[in-house]
Design a binder for these strands. Structure first.
Lengths: 232, 232
DNA sequence: CGCGAGCTTGACGTTGTTCAACTAGAGTGG
DNA sequence: CCACTCTAGTTGAACAACGTCAAGCTCGCG
């Protein structure tokens, strides 16, 4: 069990606090801080589940998470993979009362559950904060949508290239993390069969675009990936 | 030419004004109104173009529009089809400085161009307005995303069924409009070739799910479309 | 050593795109 | 009033892409 008396991380150095307190006084922030809960999640654990009521926002201090749409028969679909530090709502729709997607830890994660109502009240009072939160939220949406556009009119090798680029630029670049995703996860992101994902990755491997070392993926030729992404 | 001295529609009965003035005083709204421009668009006309700078929001009084992603070689992709009255931003990302999508009239449209900065300033000052705008904006996003999820793991007949349901429920139901879309547009929405869209539609037609009368589409069996949508 | 989970590969059938030919209607000019 | 052209719709055949299935592999763990 986690010892709730000693915090996992220090609120004084918290980026979320820094962002929020640009617009909200420390006094106003304090009740939000006090109502928040620090948690640690292991790889594969579900942080919140599709269909449940959304009462808290998640501030992802550290780690990598995925937003997934769980359909029947276990065929999940990954909408986005996000690295902390970042504020995440119910699939970044913090206005909704229900989580429309599930949030699952891809790597070990340190998160802070923030009371949705308290934060929203503060944000409505200080429009600039709401705006800042919206701006950040929309970014992720847009990335999702462009991933889907890619998916809509590209073949699998183009989509895999897109995913590698996306993950490289947004998650793994300049990071302490290693590029480790299961083949199944890559397939769920590219919306293809895992066999197809495997074949495409090993094709890229043979062509020297990437290097597969066990489960690690190393990108060698980002330029070529871009051209593959472009031509589809 | 449009005679700018006589407005196309009356600001006093405008829904956008009604919504906004729930949160903003009439005095504050007046400069926004004065800065806005009323326009009429014919079928097929581009209201704003992907890549251009986003200076105005669009309030769609009446008519139907589509958000499209224009890639090279003329292969467009439809992200959403929306019926007025509704507030539309630069692809509903009114925080962005660039239009990430194009907005095109599907039917004759009456719109009002609203100065983005003025409205945003008012919304930031009155957080509740910003929140209301965000909530509405996010709805469309969500619909888009679920359309893409459908697209990601369903076959064409499931996707076409989804589109017919979506258009019926969100655009054409209880409306003065007739269900008229070109086959090409349906294909661009379903992300398939127009031949495939045609074949699928005529299959539905033969099975009695829908009736094709020239360019009109009439839905006969919504229940069956739901089951086709579900099984993929 | 055995077992299971994840990974990998190839064969095969289905789905969907591309291409080509044909049809119907609408607009244009002689 | 009749070619003509242009666009949208339609259909079928050939081919490529992709998913499914089945088999074998590797690695880690008990």
């Amino acid at each position: 069990m986690i010892d709730q008396t000693t915090p996992l991380f220090d609120c004084n150095t918290c980026l979320f606090r820094l962002l929020t307190c640009q617009y909200v006084s420390a006094d106003e922030f304090e009740p939000i801080r006090q109502a928040s809960i620090q948690l640690h999640f292991k790889k594969g654990e579900t942080i919140f589940k599709q269909g449940t009521k959304s009462t808290h926002l998640v501030f992802l201090h550290k780690g990598i998470v995925k937003f997934i749409d769980e359909v029947d028969s276990g065929k999940d679909f990954i909408l986005a993979i996000v690295k902390g530090p970042k504020l995440l709502g119910a699939s970044n729709l913090f206005f909704k009362e229900t989580n429309v997607l599930s949030l699952v830890a891809v790597e070990e994660c340190d998160i802070c559950m923030i009371d949705q109502k308290l934060l929203l009240n503060a944000a409505v009072k200080h429009g600039e904060l709401l705006l800042a939160m919206c701006e950040r939220s929309i970014e992720m949406f847009q990335a999702s949508i462009f991933n889907f556009i890619s998916l809509a009119h590209k073949q699998v090798h183009g989509r895999i290239a897109d995913i590698l680029i996306y993950l490289w630029e947004n998650v793994y670049k300049d990071s302490e993390y290693e590029f480790i995703l299961s083949r199944k996860e890559i397939a769920e992101f590219a919306a293809c069969s895992h066999e197809n994902a495997i074949t495409t990755l090993s094709k890229f491997n043979k062509e020297g675009l990437i290097t597969l070392k066990g489960k690690k993926i190393i990108i060698n030729d980002l330029e070529k990936l871009y051209t593959i992404s472009k031509i589809g």
